[in-house]
Simulated scan of single mutants.
Amino acid sequence: MFLDQLLQSVADARNRYIAYVQQLTEEQAHWKPDADTWSAVENTEHLYWAEHGGIWGMWKILQAKRDGKPPVYQGELIHRGRSIEEIIERTWQPKEVVPPIAAPRMGGSVAFWLAALESLQQPLTKLSHELADEDFEAIIHPHPISGPLDIGQRFAFLRFHIDRHRNQVADLRTLLAV
């Protein structure tokens, strides 16, 4: 039940993000105020790569558990029982450096990246069904910045991360209006 609520919160965040960015023209979606700020397209491409990697990693960890392989992470569970907001507060810098695997690098149309981002809900939904009989708090998939997160925290991270980037796009849109 809890994982279903987390899944829905990710879907809601994804839908809010897509609806917000779809309001931009292609030109607006590519606009950026300076070289160090991502455009809406770059934010969207980043969200796709980051989420794709996170979902793939959760599937990989689940399959390893089912195959009887030792857990990928065997250290101390320093974030047990913490909300994703608290974890981010403790582990992130004000402006983080994105891991290269999640960095925007291809460019292209905003419509493509929104469709790609939208497509990730299906494998995430399938994963949540696969996890139905699992103790998801015992399945740990480390985040490259925050460290060991259980599956529930990982789902919560997806929602948090999408909302974070929607806010960044909103900031861009405010600058566009000036």
Results as ranks from 00 to 15, higher is better:
residue 16 R to M: 08
residue 137 E to Q: 12
residue 50 A to G: 15
residue 171 D to W: 04
residue 136 F to M: 10
residue 7 L to T: 07
residue 110 V to Q: 05
residue 178 V to H: 12
residue 21 V to Q: 01
residue 130 E to L: 14
residue 108 G to D: 11
residue 83 S to M: 09
residue 149 L to N: 06
residue 143 H to L: 02
residue 17 Y to N: 10
residue 22 Q to G: 12
residue 69 K to P: 05
residue 135 D to I: 02
residue 35 A to G: 06
residue 27 E to D: 13
residue 55 I to R: 07
residue 170 A to F: 01
residue 123 P to D: 09
residue 175 L to H: 13
residue 155 F to W: 07
residue 82 R to F: 02
residue 54 G to I: 00
residue 118 E to Q: 14
residue 18 I to Q: 01
residue 28 Q to C: 11
residue 140 I to E: 03
residue 121 Q to G: 05
residue 59 W to N: 13
residue 114 L to P: 03
residue 140 I to K: 04
residue 7 L to W: 02
residue 41 V to W: 00
residue 175 L to N: 11
residue 46 H to S: 04
residue 71 P to Y: 01
residue 122 Q to T: 15
residue 110 V to P: 00
residue 20 Y to G: 13
residue 127 L to C: 09
residue 4 D to E: 14
residue 65 K to P: 03
residue 61 I to P: 00
residue 95 K to T: 13
residue 91 T to R: 06
residue 14 R to H: 08
residue 78 I to V: 15
residue 84 I to R: 00
residue 74 Q to C: 06
residue 102 A to M: 12
residue 30 H to A: 15
residue 85 E to Q: 13
residue 97 V to H: 07
residue 159 R to S: 15
residue 39 S to Q: 09
residue 123 P to H: 08
residue 138 A to N: 13
residue 69 K to S: 10
residue 152 G to I: 01
residue 178 V to N: 13
residue 166 R to S: 01
residue 174 T to V: 11
residue 124 L to F: 07
residue 27 E to W: 04
residue 84 I to P: 01
residue 56 W to P: 00
residue 32 K to E: 05
